[in-house]
Simulated assay, not measured.
Amino acid sequence: MTVADAIRTAAEHLSTTSDTARLDAELLMANVLGVSRSLMLLTRMRDEAEPHLAVFENLVSRRAVCEPVAHLLGVQEFFGLEFAVTPDTLIPRGDSETMVQAALDAAPADARVLDMGTGSGALLLAVLHHCPSATGIGIDSSAAALDIAAANCKRLGLAGRAQFLRASWLEEGWADRLGAFDLVLCNPPYVETDAVLDPDVRDYEPAAALFAGPDGLDDYRAIVPQLGKLLAPGGLAIFEIGATQEEAVTGLARDSGFAVTMRRDLAGRPRALLLR
């Protein structure tokens, strides 16, 4: 059996549970071979698969029960950078790149940045990578997530410019020592408690980072009224929202005195709210 044969067989097996079965199989095989997918497709498809088959088939079996590809690989690309991910963090998604681009369009070169609910650190570290004079703090209530974020920070060469602190915006006094920021980024939990999710999200990503009450708005209600003490004069806060939440979160923000503009993601859906 060649590498091409193994990929074809795996893709057929995965097609009942994954909409990206062929891509999944290619990514898993490239990982097993220790090469990039593009190099594998160009140079390795006729290689014998047998030396790698047991490891590959194990990964395919795990993917067949909806374990995310990012967890199987241990990494996820986001805004052109590679981030380590584990089940302790949300997997960074392309939709959230809308927030990073909005931040880069607006942030001063030497911005001080706060990332609330930092998870893998993807939002903060992507901004710092593209703003060489910026510095920042990432907070999260999960110590395990903070360990992942700090490791990503180090591997991206940003360790001198970012701190990661354990804090929860649901606890009194959580922001007392943080100071003020030119830019606040927040991708909070915003999924309704009874929402139907794909099994690779529902069964494998941290519930505490997903669910936010019956209408998905609990964390916005907690955070927005506290923004005044976090933003420096002229500062900007950027929130990710669900595709149907623009009106509700805009209302919460305006009730707290903010002017609001919206950015759409590449699919044309409302994705980021900018609060000033």
Rank of each mutant, 00 (worst) to 15 (best):
T2I: 04
A4I: 05
D5T: 15
R8D: 11
A11P: 11
E12G: 04
L14V: 00
S15F: 10
D19N: 06
D19A: 15
T20V: 06
A25P: 06
L27N: 02
M29H: 00
A30S: 11
A30P: 02
A30T: 09
V32F: 05
G34N: 07
G34Q: 09
V35Y: 03
S38Y: 03
T43F: 01
D47I: 10
D47Q: 13
E48F: 07
E50R: 14
P51Q: 00
H52Y: 15
H52W: 15
H52N: 10
L53I: 10
A54T: 11
A54P: 04
V55Y: 04
E57I: 02
E57P: 08
V60C: 03
R62S: 06
R62A: 04
C66M: 11
C66N: 13
C66Q: 12
P68L: 01
A70F: 00
H71A: 10
G74M: 11
E77R: 00
F78I: 05
L81I: 06
L81N: 09
L81Y: 07
E82N: 09
F83N: 09
F83Q: 09
D88C: 00
T89R: 01
I91C: 08
R93I: 09
G94I: 13
V100Q: 02
V100M: 03
A103W: 03
A106W: 04
D115L: 07
M116T: 10
M116N: 03
G117S: 08
A122Q: 14
L128T: 12
L128C: 08
H129L: 01
C131Y: 02
A134I: 03
G136E: 07
I137H: 07
S142K: 15
A145G: 05
A149R: 01
A151L: 15
N152F: 05
K154T: 12
G157I: 02
G157E: 07
F164M: 12
L165A: 13
A167N: 13
W169Y: 09
E172R: 09
G173W: 03
G173A: 13
A175Y: 14
L183I: 01
V184M: 00
L185A: 07
P188E: 03
P188A: 10
L197S: 08
V201S: 06
E205C: 05
E205A: 11
A207K: 15
F211N: 06
D215H: 08
D215W: 00
G216P: 08
G216F: 04
D218Q: 11
D218M: 00
A222Q: 13
P225Y: 05
Q226C: 02
L227D: 02
L227R: 05
L227E: 04
L227F: 01
K229V: 06
P233R: 06
P233Y: 01
P233C: 01
L236R: 14
A243W: 07
Q245V: 14
E246C: 10
A248M: 04
A248N: 09
A248W: 12
T250P: 00
G251M: 03
D255W: 03
S256W: 02
F258A: 11
A259Y: 12
A259E: 15
A259K: 14
R263P: 09
D265Y: 06
L266S: 08
P270F: 00
P270N: 13
R271W: 06
R276L: 07
